[in-house]
Design a binder for these strands. Sequence first.
DNA 1: GCCGTTTTCGGCCCGACTGTTTTCAGTCG
Length: 578
Amino acid sequence: MARPNEEVEALLQEYADLIAITGGEAFKARAYEKAARAIGGHPTDVSRLDAAGLREIPGVGRSIAEKVVEYFRTGRVETIEERRARIPNGVRRLMAIPTLGPKKALALYEDLRISSVDELADAIKAERLRDLKGFGEKTEANILHGIELMRQAGGRILLSAAMETAEDIVTTLSGIDGCEDCAYAGSLRRMKETVGDLDILVAAARSAPFMNALTELPATAEVLVHGPKKTSVRTSEGLQVDLRVVRPASWGAALQYFTGSKAHNIHTRTLAVRAGLKLSEYGLFETESGERVASRTEAEVYERLGLPWIPPTLREDRGEIEAGLRGELPAVVTEDDIRGDLHTHTDLTDGLAPLEDMVTAAAARGYAYYAVTDHAPDMSMQLMTDDKILAQRERVRELDGRHHRMRLLHGTELNIGPEGDVDWPDDFLRDFDLCVASVHSHFGLGRDAMTRRIVRACENPYVNVIGHPTTRLIGRRPGIDADFDEVFAVCARTGTALEINAQPDRLDLGDEDILRAKEYGVKFAVDTDAHSIPQLAHLRYGVGTAQRGWLTTDDVINTWPLRRLRSFLRKERAGRPA
DNA sequence: GCCGTTTTCGGCCCGACTGTTTTCAGTCG
């Protein structure tokens, strides 16, 4: 459903970047960026709209509507192609480096003919940037640091992007005659925050129709390997896709094998060997007789090894096998367990959709409750005022219970200042149903000051959830430096939950921090931080991350009935023991 | 390029931070 919207969003964003690089038309670039966001966040499929329908989307006027129509009619937009021809695509990719914007990217291209990240790294090493106006020592260091961050991501792409491509492919292959089963495996199935390549598995008697279909997908740019057992292609977005077709009788063993992780598989194979068995992608066999003892389903394979079926998100050899052998595998939280979203925005601040539309969309997801948490005044660009948020609260109260009896909570996302202070005093905060508080700036405070800052926010009796606690952006910005062990302890003591922000470029907290925080008895909120209706569906990535952190419903406050949640939100104000 | 009006052109979320400069441009949220 959302694919065409995202295609157009990416296209318009690219055009905006190209305009920004060529310069002189700043407001035009802004207009395209705004339209890109609006279309990306639009709840209905824009490929089905005509020009008049498109123009009803805020930020889309005559010119952009025509370009979108042209794109869906011909697959390209002439004026955008012209811009593309003037600026190599690598120049645009330079802008993905933090601290490097359109102006510096253009200077690098015009003065030094640098048009790729690798060339830039080489140029810095060769000290060729030294004489460039506006580039000093610090700038060089910042760029190098940014490139390092990008390389750590190592060509991996965000979970959400991989998921969309994989689901498209699975849908296509599942429709082919003879397909008995089809699924994605690998790190995607384990819901790792980034994915290096896609592993797709098909169970069928004949492989050729599936192998051919993969090579003929519209997204396929290049065929790397084309054989009867395995075919690999590279998509136009540079993602490698490996397809394997197996006999239906081997489905479970193959799925288990290709899901990994490698460490988990080594461990399960060791168990097999000790039991006089041999585990491969074809099945579980008696070592002596070579007889196959299990292979049709994953559960069957695990069972024969003395294990319960292990959710893919736990398969990292982080103790899940030992826990399974002891019969103590946690019942990890699922998307169905989530009763409501506790961190969302509307167009009162930087969201795209009006309150009424967000609430309707939330109700359609079957939530029992839903919190509206727009930004507070300290994020000055959001232009929030006391009057505006009070008027919103009145409207929230009116809508409360109108949709399938879904209860509405009125909250806000506070900004945690450098000293740990927040936007409003206690007597104003008191009347919110809940407050999320997040760090949005001053990322460079020293470790001690940063720790004090967050601890102080946790100690605020009205702060219920610390939003995106590390503020990392995957592949773009490292998390803040703080003593998180101290933060976790204070969260547990004060009844402050930590967010698992489901935005695919955040997934913050990440799985390893969750595992650590859980040890302190911290509670968590899995929230989307949605700024549009489609983003409400990002919840699945937050839930996957929570699973990777071994969380159960008892750990996640927004799986709880409203009564229990409300009691938690009162913090120590209701006489909670210190 | 969009929007909204003051109905046909002028404003477009605004402020802070950083690094390079010596008064400001670029980037970010």
